[in-house]
């Protein structure tokens, strides 16, 4: 199919160095990722108490899981969280990126990007701790409503079933996620000048430019970010853990990741926890594939680009180690 070097080079000799170069990657992955992952899948078929004995139960854990009202509740909660966070974490950074992109001064523009990226350095725990203070009885939200003379609007924000989940979701405020802004901005800079200039000559206003040029050409970035966000939200539970402790009141803020954590390390049901992990994995995989289909697009506006290899474009994110 392709010609690499001279024609005399045999197929094996051509391919061997390639395998040699990717070998270290795969050795590491095998030891530290594939094998533990395999173990986890394997253990999802067991009733397994860490350090104790493991009993094979087949798909028993999965049957139990789908009948488990707590798991169902956690799925509903995570659904709401995913929807909310997907919307705000994809739109607000887009707005900010557009605003930055509008600024002509190279220096201000650069400084702004650095500034918005900087908060990535703040440990997330600091932000959650701060929000716990904001939501507390002595917190600013309560004091503010008291000052405004609306004591009936005051809730125990993280304890009340009406407000707890919303309170958790809102801790991302103002949702200007540095990483997302940079991705959008990069996408914007990749739009060829010529297209924008011709639009300008046609007298298109900023909204039209955004709607008809930026948005379609940013589809690649949107696709990437939506998958990244989804995966981060789906398996994240530290925020809930820090904010409401157990996903309460009742099960109002429980999420699958937290439920898995409790099963594994509090209820001593590692097999069941693994089963939850397997389900999460499947959902993420399905979403990624669907996203792939739905948002299929061709951002390939660089005319000279030649595709020779089969395009493998699965946009996904790596979990924390």
């Amino acid at each position: 199919m392709k010609k690499y070097g001279g024609k005399t080079v045999s197929r094996w000799n051509r391919v061997a160095p390639l395998y040699g170069l990717i070998l270290p990657t795969f050795v590491l992955l095998l030891v530290f990722n594939y094998y533990p992952a395999f173990l986890a899948f394997f253990r999802s078929l067991y009733e397994w108490d860490v350090g104790g004995k493991a009993v094979f139960v087949g798909l028993g854990n999965f049957y139990e899981l789908f009948a488990d009202p707590i798991f169902r509740k956690s799925a509903i909660n995570i659904g709401k969280l995913v929807l909310f966070i997907m919307v705000v974490n994809l739109t607000v950074p887009l707005l900010v990126a557009e605003l930055i992109f509008m600024i002509r001064s190279e220096r201000v523009n650069y400084a702004l990007r650095v500034l918005f990226a900087l908060p990535m350095l703040i440990p997330p725990i600091v932000i959650w701790v701060l929000w716990k203070f904001i939501y507390s009885d002595a917190g600013i939200l309560t004091v503010l409503l008291e000052t405004l003379g609306k004591p009936e609007w005051i809730y125990g924000w993280l304890s009340h079933p009406k407000t707890a989940l919303a309170a958790v979701a809102f801790t991302g405020f103002p949702f200007a996620v540095g990483f997302n802004i940079l991705v959008y901005y990069t996408g914007l800079t990749q739009i060829p000048r010529s297209i924008l200039e011709s639009a300008h000559l046609d007298g298109a206003g900023p909204w039209q430019v955004f709607r008809h040029i930026h948005l379609p050409l940013l589809r690649g970035s949107i696709k990437l970010l939506s998958v990244l966000t989804l995966i981060a939200v789906l398996q994240g539970f530290e925020s809930v853990y820090v904010l409401t402790g157990d996903g309460g009141p009742g099960y109002e803020t429980i999420v699958p990741g937290l439920y898995m954590f409790f099963n594994g390390f509090t209820y001593n049901r590692m097999g069941y926890a693994c089963a939850i992990g397997v389900v999460l994995f499947t959902v993420m995989l399905l979403f990624t594939l669907v996203n792939q289909r739905l948002l299929r697009c061709d951002t390939d506006y660089t005319p000279e680009k030649k595709r020779r290899r089969p395009a493998l474009k699965l946009r996904v994110h790596q979990p924390r180690v």
Partner: peptide, 11 residues
């Protein structure tokens, strides 16, 4: 690529 979707706590 598939490894990106493994929840970290699973492993």
């Amino acid at each position: 690529i598939g490894l990106m979707m493994l929840p970290w706590i699973l492993t």
